[in-house]
Design a protein around this nucleic acid. Sequence first.
DNA 1: GTAACGTGCAACCAAATGGTTGTACGTATG
DNA 2: CATACGTACAACCATTTGGTTGCACGTTAC
Lengths: 112, 112
Amino acid sequence: MSDARRTDRRFHALADPTRRDIVRRALADELSVTALATSYRMSFAAVQKHVAVLERADLVTKRRSGREQLVRSSIDALRSVAESLDQLEEVWRGRIDRFGAVLADEAEGDQQ
Amino acid sequence: MSDARRTDRRFHALADPTRRDIVRRALADELSVTALATSYRMSFAAVQKHVAVLERADLVTKRRSGREQLVRSSIDALRSVAESLDQLEEVWRGRIDRFGAVLADEAEGDQQ
DNA sequence: GTAACGTGCAACCAAATGGTTGTACGTATG
DNA sequence: CATACGTACAACCATTTGGTTGCACGTTAC
């Protein structure tokens, strides 16, 4: 999968409060899909779909244990999302640096 | 607008490569909608819609200058997205801390 | 004043999203 | 073995998304 496509999926997966909550809870503990589902006012199938969206984005992984499927969040995937934001932050800093350079040039021009 | 709703919109807005590119370019420079639009292989109206999505998410602001509308990204909004990821990171660290505590307890139990 | 430019917006369309119910199947429990 | 549990998945539906074209309107340039 292309990098951009993966980033798309990750941001998209996080653009829903239920899914962010699932990620949060599965960061703290490993939980079965049913255990997760009891917390939300929607059908089990709906929660299962949310987990599938997170799984396709690699934000969570599942591990079978008997008849349960245990969901765990991937801190690495979350960090890679944070990283794409950091890249933007760097672009912004670059702009400031150039702005600073212009000011320095002007000061140089002004000096006697 | 609720906090969650705003977070939804921001993640959603960033879940598209064209929009992330617009944010990136408007972080480095202030650009008109038309200037932005020339870079992408889609209609002006489509780009305009992307800018509108970013605007509703407060990720960019527009400033009128003559007949042009200059788009600039908001570094603060980007940082607030990064912040919601940091909160998840903290949950994860909390889990590790508890895990560490369990190990410490076990060690304590083990000690002679 | 007229023509060209930059923008906003409505109408339309195909595809994706987010929910539902129902069914099927492997696993545990009594 | 029979029943309940946990999960997966298909079919269906309303809404949203992401694109298009066309038109209107204010601003600039000639």
